[in-house]
């Protein structure tokens, strides 16, 4: 694989992410990592469900009393939209349109950062209510589950930014196309996890 090889949209392969052996390996390896992540998050969800609303006797906090849906709704919409914008970015990657891809990735990063900001605001709000990390088994499980997701968002953002900056001058090639593709897969996976978080933690929490 020659990193200096220049491509035109016409010579750019149909599936640049798996066009090289290295790309193929990364592609399979990353999906396997996602399978492992599925089990990781399942363990976190399972623990959260077992410890939901559990605390020292007389604990004043419960999921039904704590969570507020409008903020969660906004966060959900933002993250879902960022999933679509990363699909657009990959669409342009496959068209070998580097500028458009960078632009869509930029939008994705902005949306992701907004999501993360809202999450920090939410956590901060709960902590001010007295619902700190060490408050109860419930709070530990809640912050660990949602916080792990937040850490994934942060990692995804850093990954996108690093890729965009590193490749800003040299454009798309066979060496970085798999990297962009995997970063966007990661982003979709983060969205998948959030779908379950808003359903299982927030919606089912509010119901009680």
């Amino acid at each position: 694989m020659d990193i200096n090889q220049r491509y035109t949209p016409q010579s750019w392969p149909e599936h640049p992410e798996t066009a090289t052996m290295e790309g193929k390996n990364k592609f399979i390896g990353f999906w396997l990592l996602l399978a492992a992540e599925t089990v990781t998050f399942a363990s976190l969800f399972a623990t959260y469900l077992a410890l939901k609303d559990k605390g020292p006797s007389g604990m004043e906090f419960s999921a039904a009393g704590l969570f507020e849906l409008p903020l969660v709704f906004a966060m959900t919409m933002i993250l879902l939209t960022s999933s679509l914008t990363s699909v657009y970015a990959m669409y342009h990657m496959k068209n070998h349109n580097f500028k458009a891809m960078q632009a869509w990735l930029g939008i994705t990063v902005l949306l992701g950062a907004t999501f993360l900001g809202l999450e920090i605001y939410e956590f901060n709000h709960y902590v001010h209510l007295g619902f700190g990390y060490t408050n109860s088994a419930f709070s530990s499980a809640f912050y660990t589950l949602v916080g792990t997701h937040g850490a994934h968002v942060l990692f995804g953002l850093s990954w996108f930014i690093a890729l965009m900056l590193r490749n800003a001058k040299r454009g798309l090639n066979m060496y970085n196309a798999p990297k962009f593709y995997l970063a966007s897969l990661y982003w979709h996976f983060i969205d998948v996890v959030w779908v379950f978080i808003f359903t299982v933690v927030y919606l089912m929490g509010v119901i009680g």
Partner: peptide, 10 residues
């Protein structure tokens, strides 16, 4: 595996 983990812990 995710499913049986959640099932067990609930």
């Amino acid at each position: 595996v995710a499913f049986i983990t959640v099932l067990a812990l609930v």
